[in-house]
Design a protein around this nucleic acid. Structure first.
Lengths: 343, 343
DNA sequence: TTTAGCACTCAACAGATAAGAGTGCTAACA
DNA sequence: TGTTAGCACTCTTATCTGTTGAGTGCTAAA
């Protein structure tokens, strides 16, 4: 168990290190206004804290630096509540009051806000498509043998894809097909769409079109081989401004990690509601060593959940970031609620 | 005027420097198989070349490095024709034979090919929208007071935007409006769309809808405040692998330049057909110092032109890059030709 | 005209030295 | 018994020094 004084010392060390990125010495701590002990006393406490694994030395006679265990303790027990400044809140309010109506736009803007206000890199994972439903399907002919298929969901999301129309299929057939599809598929959750297309609809369609196989193949291909995960990243270059990432190799490994969307998506995939902090090694990925990831969930309706995340060095401004994520995740949830739930 | 031997020396220096990134000494040159002079002779020639400004020393007793003037001369007069390897050509052929039908997809893939085959950063500027025409306009209601407007062009490009539908406008009016718009606007070049909407259509629409102003405002806002330039970037992280960019500051300035889309678009905006090489200072931008930009144009139809570009250090593999851009720009042009011209 | 030879220059590296920050330990003090 | 002053010790950082090696420029000879 940590004594009150040890708690205070630990807090000062971490707070200070978070702002300066420099090892903290006993003298610096004893000079703090709310610390009333001599540097020698502090040194004794620091030796204890180090023994317990909360802080480390960078070399035998250096000041102390928080260990990952130290950060973990700090996040769990020492976080001072942080109030965002009015100007920060203004930025958020102002952005959301612009009346954006598209999921993409809202999320992209949010990623921008997060990275701008924190100087870390923000990553937003779009929601799982549990409840998104098909609103309408359209096929528009472009030339004699090409057309574009457009799929609109109840959330206003638009997916489109051009495809070749084989000569055997004429425009009339195509229209019939679309009508059938719309009839049968409107309101069906996107996630079940491919299934339904294959089972229920197939038989029906065969009656109407001469060459169902081809049509099915094309429509299916047109709409379903997209990458299902959507990641929105903001402030990728902010990483370059952190003093801990002055090594090009490190930067490269982080960037190449971020390019693997599936990997990042797994990192962010929400397990439970609320805020989650992963510090350094707690992230299993090699590229994430020395980094912390703070995630918050947001939701659209009851079951769809997405994730907001901020990626920075372990020396992150945890309390600020957590406050910000809290505010923004709530804001996102209410925004999406008002957009899509009243339909 | 340069002697034959000076040309040879310059060529060796630049070729060698492009592959090794190390200053080249007289001894190294004299050891080359097709060089039959002693290092002393080479040294004399190098002194002359330096006097003329084609090469430089990094310090008083270092080997020589090409100057920007040297690169310029090299590109203009010494470029050895370069044949792409079969495997490289295969990559291209294979990718294009997949039968991609959307502009976005083709271009995105092309950017990928360029950056993968060169290890530089590729940037592709989409075409000016001179001749793209409206194919169809759709408005699909989402909820009682929101809808998504979808605009499809003859090139299969889909643009969409959600917007608020004020209570005064009901679904029937909306449908009428869309019908009118489609009637009058199909086939109109996108670039003239906003004009036409304002002049011709306005009066007509007023008869049908109770509150034209609002409707117009929303439709207009829905479709036209998008950023008109489209940039497709590939291999952003390739920059990190160039030894000349080991300085984080340089990386940051390059990345932040690339984020300014308008700026980059101006850099790429095609002036004339064909390949253009800009070396170091020839690019006026500060961030581009030490970099070369090689651009090639491609076209869709007669007037639409876009640009392929590769961004790397001045020590670029000019001949390889130029060959590659040649091949790919032709390939893009024919691909788009066959996609959009036969309609 | 070409080349061998040589003195010279400079970067890069490895020690060496000094300054400074910070520690751990001991002994004295309240 | 907890706290603190004092001091020796450690390690980093910066600076300086000498050495090595690559490469040059110049001169004189072939």
């Amino acid at each position: 168990m940590l004594s009150k004084r040890q708690l205070q010392v630990l807090q000062v060390i971490i707070d200070e290190f978070i702002t300066t990125a420099q090892p903290i010495g006993s003298r610096a701590i004893s000079k703090k206004d709310d610390v009333s002990f001599s540097s020698a006393t502090i040194r004794n406490e620091m030796a204890d804290l180090e023994e317990m694994g909360f802080i480390e030395k960078t070399h035998s006679s250096s000041g102390r630096v928080p260990s990952e265990k130290g950060y973990r303790f700090y996040v769990d027990h020492l976080l001072s509540p942080f109030s965002l400044s009015n100007s920060e809140l203004d930025v958020i309010t102002h952005t959301f009051d612009e009346g954006m109506l598209e999921f993409e736009r809202v999320v992209q803007k949010s990623a921008g806000i997060l990275s701008d206000l924190t100087n870390y890199t923000s990553i937003i994972l779009g929601p799982e498509v549990f409840e998104t439903k098909l609103k309408q399907l359209q096929i528009i002919s472009l030339t004699a043998n090409s057309a574009v298929a457009i799929l609109v969901t109840n959330t206003g999301h638009v997916e489109h894809r051009s495809f070749n129309v084989p000569n055997e299929i004429n425009a009339v057939d195509l229209e019939k097909l679309v009508n059938i599809l719309n009839d049968k598929l409107t309101g069906v959750p996107i996630i079940k769409l491919q299934d339904r297309l294959q089972t229920e609809i197939a038989a029906l369609v065969k009656k109407y079109t001469k060459d169902f196989e081809a049509a099915y193949h094309y429509i299916n291909g047109a709409l379903f081989d997209e990458n299902p995960v959507k990641l929105y990243v903001g402030g990728k270059t902010n990483i370059l401004m952190q003093p801990e990432f002055k090594d090009i190799e490190k930067i490269r490994s982080l960037y190449s990690m971020m390019e693997q969307e599936e990997l990042v998506a797994n990192l962010l995939r929400p397990e439970t509601d609320g805020i989650k902090v992963s510090i350094g090694q707690e992230n299993k990925l090699d590229a994430m060593q020395g980094c912390s990831l703070i995630t918050a969930t947001y939701s659209i309706g009851d079951r769809q959940m997405g994730t907001l995340a901020l990626l920075g060095p372990t020396r992150m401004e945890y309390s600020r970031v957590i406050s910000l994520l809290n505010v923004l995740s709530k804001r996102l949830t209410t925004t999406f609620h008002s957009l899509y739930e009243k339909e």
